Computed example of a mutant assay.
Amino acid sequence: MYNKKGFILKFFNKIFSEEPQDKKELLYFINKSKKNKLIVQNTYNIVKKVINLENKKVKDIMVPRTQMITLNIHDTLKKCLKITIQSSYSRFPIMSYDKNHIIGFLIAKDLFKNIYNDQKNFLLKKIIKKPVIIPDSQNLNRTLKEFYLNKNYMSIVIDEFGIITGLITIKDILKHLFKKIK
């Protein structure tokens, strides 16, 4: 029977029997492992992307502001449901008076809970979460770490002048890592 844990341990022992001193050497060992057929091409691609994640910036993979689907703080329950269902997204930035003023995030499941609750007294501001704002120059490694630590999976992206340039989700980072898997 195939022992997955044993294979992974053997794999890392083989790779790190000669300890790499820097990222360049680490990539060399990973490449050598691929050539020696210890790992397949897809695994090689993913490991390489993970190692180089710190070189990629949020602005490289974010959803641009022009493609953001947002809700307005004054939207009705009906309008929020319509946009949520049409877009098939689970998180939405909430704007107030313009697209430069984000006041929070709506998580779709919180909206769905209100369908059976008090529909007449629905106020979006009661169910939104605090927005998380990050610079577009932040590396993806740090962003991914913050997503996991804070259990927040969407951030608004701003430029060096504080202008909203887009948003990024954990799904965007995972797509970057895994998109070429066949």
Score class of each variant (00 low, 15 high):
residue 66 T to N: 03
residue 71 L to G: 01
residue 62 M to K: 04
residue 113 K to E: 14
residue 99 K to L: 05
residue 107 I to G: 07
residue 9 L to M: 13
residue 28 Y to K: 15
residue 82 K to D: 04
residue 161 F to G: 00
residue 155 S to H: 13
residue 172 D to T: 03
residue 162 G to K: 01
residue 44 Y to I: 11
residue 47 V to C: 12
residue 44 Y to W: 05
residue 17 S to N: 07
residue 180 K to L: 00
residue 19 E to I: 10
residue 122 F to W: 10
residue 170 I to S: 01
residue 121 N to D: 14
residue 161 F to Y: 04
residue 173 I to H: 02
residue 157 V to P: 03
residue 87 S to L: 05
residue 71 L to N: 04
residue 84 T to C: 13
residue 27 L to Q: 06
residue 97 Y to W: 09
residue 98 D to P: 01
residue 40 V to S: 11
residue 55 N to E: 15
residue 65 R to A: 00
residue 19 E to Y: 15
residue 122 F to T: 03
residue 138 Q to D: 12
residue 58 V to E: 04
residue 4 K to S: 14
residue 6 G to P: 10
residue 59 K to A: 08
residue 106 L to N: 01
residue 119 Q to S: 14
residue 116 Y to G: 12
residue 136 D to R: 02
residue 22 D to P: 14
residue 44 Y to R: 02
residue 180 K to M: 00
residue 181 I to H: 01
residue 41 Q to S: 15
residue 102 I to F: 00
residue 43 T to C: 00
residue 132 V to P: 05
residue 162 G to C: 04
residue 83 I to Q: 06
residue 20 P to T: 14
residue 84 T to F: 06
residue 130 K to C: 02
residue 178 F to E: 00
residue 155 S to A: 04
residue 70 T to W: 03
residue 100 N to P: 05
residue 67 Q to G: 07
residue 121 N to Q: 10
residue 94 I to M: 09
residue 31 N to W: 15
residue 149 L to G: 08
residue 138 Q to G: 11
residue 96 S to F: 07
residue 134 I to R: 04
residue 21 Q to N: 14
residue 103 I to S: 10
residue 56 K to R: 09
residue 11 F to E: 09
residue 155 S to F: 09
residue 34 K to M: 10
residue 154 M to T: 08
residue 57 K to Q: 11
residue 109 K to S: 08
residue 51 I to F: 00
residue 73 I to M: 06
residue 63 V to K: 08
residue 150 N to P: 07
residue 171 K to P: 01
residue 126 K to N: 13
residue 23 K to D: 11
residue 92 F to I: 03
residue 67 Q to I: 03
residue 108 A to D: 13
residue 36 N to G: 05
residue 57 K to H: 12
residue 40 V to N: 15
residue 180 K to I: 04
residue 123 L to R: 15
residue 111 L to H: 06
residue 106 L to I: 05
residue 43 T to Y: 09
residue 101 H to Y: 10
residue 111 L to K: 09
residue 86 Q to E: 14
residue 83 I to N: 02
residue 155 S to R: 05
residue 67 Q to R: 13
residue 179 K to P: 00
residue 170 I to P: 00
residue 182 K to F: 03
residue 39 I to H: 02
residue 116 Y to T: 15
residue 66 T to Y: 03
residue 47 V to G: 08
residue 114 N to L: 15
residue 31 N to A: 11
residue 63 V to T: 15
residue 80 C to M: 05
residue 128 I to A: 11
residue 115 I to A: 03
residue 132 V to L: 12
residue 177 L to A: 02
residue 80 C to I: 01
residue 134 I to V: 02
residue 17 S to M: 06
residue 26 L to W: 12
residue 159 D to T: 07
residue 180 K to A: 06
residue 133 I to E: 10
residue 180 K to E: 10
residue 168 I to S: 00
residue 102 I to D: 00
residue 159 D to M: 08
residue 45 N to F: 09
residue 6 G to T: 13
residue 1 M to R: 05
residue 44 Y to F: 14
residue 31 N to D: 15
residue 22 D to F: 13
residue 81 L to W: 05
residue 159 D to R: 02
residue 142 R to P: 02
residue 155 S to I: 07
residue 60 D to E: 07
